[in-house]
């Protein structure tokens, strides 16, 4: 589902953000990505979602070769990926329902389907009763669950989450990780970046360790 081969990313400076990255993540796999700040985690995620390009090497995500992808294909790739951020990135002038419905509306799904599917997903994340609330009136944990609902509503093959529990207390963090594992159990590849090594250890999943732009550990 996600494959990096001999990937290098260099920014002007030069700053070598990623060096010779080789990795393969299969369908339905749950993988953690750990490493200190500045190790290159976000750069790696940006490449998966085609927000950044490689300097050399090849990246394959959900059947797309990102070294050859053209700008018209990028939205199509992104519709096969779900993204969750530490700061949720919910639109504050839209209700939870409207936020979650966005990926379906963007791909032009019919209203009847959107209604049914969004309610189904909000039910799954335990927020059906708050569908008409605005993000700023709900808790951080609920906001993150909404963000996850938005990331999975279109049933993506890959879900990437950049520090999804970074702004949450331990109990909320566990709830969010349970939710991500449930998503993975449905067959979605889940790739999670986290600083919380204790939590990562407890979950007993494959863990990639990134340091100075290089993968220095792959614990299965």
């Amino acid at each position: 589902m996600i494959e990096f081969s001999h990937v290098y990313k260099t920014y002007s400076g030069p700053v070598h953000a990623l060096k010779n990255i080789d990795l393969k993540i299969g369908k339905g796999e749950f993988v953690f990505l750990t490493g200190p700040s500045g190790a290159g985690k976000t750069t790696l995620f940006k490449m998966i979602s085609a927000f950044d390009s490689v300097t050399s090497g090849n990246v394959n995500v959900a059947g797309f070769n990102l070294s050859e992808i053209n700008h018209r294909e990028i939205p199509i790739l992104r519709r096969k990926i779900g993204v969750v951020f530490q700061d949720f990135k919910l639109l504050r002038d839209k209700t939870l329902f409207e936020n979650v419905a966005l990926p379906l509306q963007v791909r032009g799904d019919k209203n009847v389907f959107v209604q049914r599917r969004v309610h189904e997903v909000l039910e799954k994340v335990g927020l059906a009763h708050r569908h008409d609330q605005y993000p700023e009136f709900i808790s951080g944990g609920e906001q993150q669950r909404t963000a996850i609902a938005r990331a999975i509503v279109h049933q993506p093959g890959v879900l990437i989450a950049d520090e999804p529990t970074g702004n949450l207390d331990p109990r909320m963090s566990e709830e969010i990780m349970d939710l991500l594992e449930a998503v993975c159990a449905q067959g979605t590849t889940v790739f999670v970046a986290s600083h919380d090594l204790e939590m990562v250890k407890r979950r007993k999943k494959r863990t990639l360790e990134l340091k100075d732009g290089m993968i220095v550990g792959d614990l299965k």
């Binding site: 700008h71 993204v83 919910l90 966005l102 990926p103 279109h154």
Partner: peptide, 15 residues
């Protein structure tokens, strides 16, 4: 922020 969210979920440039 809104633009980046729309891009992230696969909205086309025209959208």
């Amino acid at each position: 922020d809104e633009i980046s969210v729309l891009e992230m979920i696969g909205a086309t440039y025209a959208y």
